[in-house]
Design a protein around this nucleic acid. Structure first.
Lengths: 240, 240
DNA sequence: CGTTAAATTGAGATCTTTCAACTACGGTGG
DNA sequence: CCACCGTAGTTGAAAGATCTCAATTTAACG
């Protein structure tokens, strides 16, 4: 796997590789929600939007954390390597989620971040955060909020993806993946990613997915997103 | 179980129920490490130290978060209830750890916090934090640091206590419990707490503990802390 | 269309749970 | 001091879940 960053305009194609946070479509949800247009204008220059392809590595565990990221669309996994050589996914990040917050504390990245799907993100250098923090004390609240959100997601990973039978954990994962879509569908996800997210083997993940298909709980046509039945998945998720 | 808070002097017995943060023995590790004595004096009054007994509930999930806590000694579990009625421990907190950081964001507590052992803690009302944040922008850094630390611990819970066989998870838990002591010992812990921390059943927890005793890996005399052999536990922890 | 990686499936071994019975321990009250 | 009680801990046996390893099929991609 190699780093494969493709720069892209933030919202406007003409601004290739440069952020246009003033007109950003997700601005209300991102880090600068509380800032005035004026404050924003001074600081946006070093911020860039980028798009990374599936399997691209955003950053590596242990490397120098120079920026934090906000996900605009797509799916990112945060992985951690175990002493015995295996790997565990500890977080799945989606739209509005943040990663790399370690950068604010000048600590090295604690995970390896890899795109599962094509992902668009905003890259905010640590200096920008530190500058904003100095100028605007209320800006801290935004960071608190982001960190608290990460903690929520971490708890959710323990509760939903690391508790109960493999079948109910997988049901919860599919519900999670389908959460953001209106028509209960989710993009293809590798069995290996399912397995490392749930702490099970690839074979078990495959068997349960096959079983869900046979029972008509999910429907995955090649080249298309999978469609699922949330009511049925919820029954399995709660072990009823 | 009922709330059983016993107030105790912070460091000086004469200050019963009131904090004496200026002379606090763990001051360098706690939230106010970066503040001057002068800044501290103005704010310590509403802070109190308290000691809670085993099984005492520090706060309940969903209740109004009015204060954050720093643990001075002891062991606290953060629990979360599942839709199906069972319960999962998502964090084990020890000396220097914090909980209830939700208070800073005026969010309700997200866990139920219960003492596993007799625990001493400092209680810092949310207003104190907010006041300090206003006066001292660098104070935010301390909060960032605490939150980042909570994230570390959450990841650790996933990696160490929710990954691999029940045996290696339990070995990692015992290493965690013995971590702070010089002579590799840890206090008695209920099988139920082991089970809810590792996502296994009480019986499995009991069987593995019994097996560890038989193999001479741990030695638990009644009325005494357990003594363990970290080298052996590490081999099991890493599945070698 | 061929090549390669990913996904699927089967069968047996191993691990974990379940449920039930039993034991040990720490109080409490006589 | 001891008998009693309730809770927590232990153990056994069988069922069920998951893993391992190997073989096979399918899908993806140039």
């Amino acid at each position: 796997m190699r780093l494969d960053l493709m720069k892209a305009g933030c919202t406007d194609k003409e601004w290739e590789g440069r952020a246009n946070c003033l007109h950003c479509v997700i601005r209300d949800h991102v880090l600068f929600a509380d800032l005035t247009i004026h404050e924003l204008e001074k600081l946006v220059s070093p911020i860039e939007c980028l798009t990374i392809a599936p399997n691209a590595i955003l950053y590596r565990s242990g490397s120098n954390a120079e920026a934090i990221y906000t996900i605009r669309s797509g799916l990112i996994k945060l992985m951690q390597f175990l002493p015995n050589g295996s790997v565990r996914t500890v977080r799945l990040l989606r739209q509005f989620d943040n990663c790399g917050l370690e950068a604010i504390l000048h600590q090295p990245y604690r995970h390896t971040a890899v795109a599962i799907a094509k992902t668009e993100l905003c890259r905010i250098p640590a200096e920008v955060i530190l500058a904003l923090k100095k100028e605007d004390t209320d800006f801290c609240r935004q960071i608190f909020y982001r960190m608290q959100n990460s903690l929520n997601e971490a708890d959710r990973f323990i509760i939903e993806f690391s508790t109960g039978s493999a079948e109910s954990r997988l049901a919860r994962l599919l519900l999670f993946l389908a959460e953001s879509s209106q028509n209960s569908c989710f993009n293809k996800i590798a069995r290996e990613d399912i397995a490392s997210s749930l702490g099970i083997t690839i074979e078990t993940a495959s068997r349960i997915m096959a079983d869900f298909k046979r029972r008509g709980i999910i429907n995955c046509e090649p080249r298309h997103p999978c469609v699922c039945r949330p009511e049925k998945l919820r029954l399995i998720a709660e072990d009823l």
